[in-house]
Design a binder for these strands. Sequence first.
DNA 1: AATCCCTTGACCGATTCGGTTATTCATGGT
DNA 2: ACCATGAATAACCGAATCGGTCAAGGGATT
Lengths: 205, 205
Amino acid sequence: MDKFLSLKEEKQVTIINAALGCFGKYGYAKASVNDIAVLAGISKASVFQYFGSKKQLYAYLLTYTGDIIMSSFRQADFDEKTDLFDRILLSSLTEAKTLEKNPYISQFILSAWTETADEVRDILTEFKNETGKFRNHLILRKDDVSKFKNPNDAETVLQILMLMAEGYAAHCRNDEKTVYSSLTDDFQKMIAAMRRNFYKEEYLL
Amino acid sequence: MDKFLSLKEEKQVTIINAALGCFGKYGYAKASVNDIAVLAGISKASVFQYFGSKKQLYAYLLTYTGDIIMSSFRQADFDEKTDLFDRILLSSLTEAKTLEKNPYISQFILSAWTETADEVRDILTEFKNETGKFRNHLILRKDDVSKFKNPNDAETVLQILMLMAEGYAAHCRNDEKTVYSSLTDDFQKMIAAMRRNFYKEEYLL
DNA sequence: AATCCCTTGACCGATTCGGTTATTCATGGT
DNA sequence: ACCATGAATAACCGAATCGGTCAAGGGATT
């Protein structure tokens, strides 16, 4: 795989995105190496030259995406943000930025979690153990609840935001032409409106 | 295809769901007739016995799902509901009921809209023309806006609800074990909370 | 012009593709 | 008990595609 790493970065990104897209869309079994090669604009033989085998390519993508997710979550320190909406917003912005550079990462990871192909079962269990513990940042804290006009709404709002995030991700994935930044602006606007209407006035600053 | 229609309904549903799931998940080219047969618990030869060819099966599914969508939308008359939240809720309930009976319909239709296989291009354009005009029911009306404490929030709330619906659909699709009715309860709770916090008090009854 | 390395068209055996056919199986009438 | 009949499928077909290999180009560098 050092063969692959010595390529110029732009070509690497093209190939990686092609592979992420194919595996993410079709799953391991149905995604053929030829599909990936054609989508990346190179020959099938080159893919094997770079990665050795289909399984090794898949394994590389797992560690690649795993590293990106980890580092982007480490970089944005959630513990500093003490407000529920701020944490939600920061999480979304982080994810949007990652997606902008590499649009197929979330799709790939999502498919990896439901992948059942025997050939990659071993490396998948390893991957799941490593990354299974991220995303505990969005829990509802005690001091969040008290800010709501009606404290019972806190749990409901969290569910709303979760659903929105899912829909947002699905939306991004389906529409490649979408400019992420503008969508993110809309998302910020929505969250601001929610906070403005659900919070007690003294917490609106 | 009369061969297929003379089967007992339960078996029909099983086969249809298997086919919808495979086509929806993989797309026309990658979904093989064998996949569908195995998933439905029948032999591949039977599929050809029932539908003649892969393309004819796909065409049947298009009209099948198209009819279901149309009739379920006709049945729930949206024009009678004059409130934005009521219309959203009714739309969601209708969709949830349809999904409960046939979980893969939305996935199939979604994939059909991005299908590019040459072999089914002709029947797809026909299908898109027929069904392209439904779903204009969720437009924001003039009398909705005035109910908001801040009229500017109306547009934002509509976007939030759209995102939630997308996330809701994605959620339903990924988690088969989910009891739809309970999820629908949660959804109702969320919408109620939104209305309670965004509307002027005189519209809360 | 000889060397080197990267890329790829052509090819391999094996599998799977959409589709067909001949056999098996269940069932009901006699 | 027997057979006739229709439904379901195992076995099969040629063609295409699968993951993977390899030797023949092609473009630099010396």
